[in-house]
Simulated assay, not measured.
Amino acid sequence: MRIILGIEYNGSHYHGWQAQAHANSIQQTLERALSKIAAHPLQVQCAGRTDAGVHALEQIIHFDTEAERPMQAWLLGGNSHLPDDVRILWAQPAIGDFHARYSAIARFYRYVICNRPIKSALLYQQSTWCYPPLDAEKMHQAAQHLIGEHDFTSFRAQSCESKSPNRLMHFIEVYRQGDQVIMDISANAFLHHMVRNIAGVLMEVGSGKQPTDWTSHLLAVKDRKQAARTAPPEGLYLGGVCYPAHYGLNTHPIFAKLPRDAKRFD
């Protein structure tokens, strides 16, 4: 049987999602807990790997097992073996050929910026601090140049191993909530550090250092060196993953904003 889980985590004390020999990871933490419920070793697959210090509002994972357990056992039993900064939100059996990564048709990330003169104690390691005042409206205007299918070479890490720099950007919204500036962004898939590089560029625009059409220029030049520094990982959250309706998964309400022609595979 293939089981699907929705996972929430605070990535502050982990070296990212992927299992590593000499560092603590989200993947290893989940596999240890779930293997106790299954009574045999398990390997989990995720919708999208997150870097060190990055969080998830809802990561989607799946695993295969011969152990017959009620869904509540995976949910409650799994959580009983997990640390307080990792939680299983829901569990359900997979339908058909579901794969957490390869069945996904869109991902949603949120980037949170604490924009005030003093750092936040409550959002320590859960937001990026930027003390110069940011113009969220200008950031939003600049972000709209990135909508659609583009070559995102200027926004990918130099170490990115993806064969193609092209991605289909569904929407980007930048808005202010009190002393927080929030960026919500969705695409069919993302390049390595792509969201953090976009956030870094938009903060340059928001602080008045660059014009709102700088994003168009960066798309055209296809040169990572001409863009801004990569924004810190602390403000980044994997917000949710969208799948075709026939898999029977409830998706984050934000995916209702996807254009009708967005249902395409990466």
Rank of each mutant, 00 (worst) to 15 (best):
188 N>V: 01
85 D>M: 10
126 Q>D: 05
64 D>P: 07
239 G>H: 05
263 K>Y: 15
255 F>Q: 06
172 I>G: 00
140 H>C: 04
246 H>F: 11
91 A>D: 09
249 L>G: 05
50 T>N: 02
188 N>I: 08
215 T>K: 05
76 L>K: 14
155 F>M: 05
135 D>W: 10
131 Y>I: 06
72 Q>T: 15
205 V>G: 00
86 V>K: 03
8 E>D: 06
16 G>C: 09
171 F>T: 00
264 R>Y: 03
65 T>G: 09
12 S>C: 06
1 M>K: 14
203 M>S: 11
77 G>H: 06
8 E>C: 05
129 W>Y: 15
241 V>L: 03
134 L>A: 10
148 G>D: 03
140 H>T: 09
248 G>F: 02
181 V>H: 10
165 P>C: 11
145 H>P: 02
53 G>F: 01
49 R>S: 08
122 L>Q: 01
6 G>K: 01
89 L>P: 13
240 G>V: 10
177 Q>H: 11
187 A>P: 01
45 Q>S: 15
238 L>W: 05
13 H>R: 13
242 C>R: 14
26 I>P: 08
51 D>E: 12
196 R>F: 09
33 A>K: 03
170 H>C: 11
168 L>T: 14
85 D>N: 15
15 H>Q: 10
216 S>I: 01
190 F>I: 03
15 H>L: 04
196 R>C: 07
10 N>A: 08
12 S>T: 15
47 A>C: 15
138 K>D: 15
40 H>I: 05
34 L>V: 02
247 Y>D: 05
52 A>N: 11
168 L>E: 13
256 A>V: 13
99 H>I: 01
129 W>H: 15
152 F>I: 02
43 Q>N: 11
243 Y>P: 10
134 L>S: 12
52 A>H: 07
87 R>T: 13
48 G>Y: 01
247 Y>P: 11
83 P>A: 04
228 A>D: 08
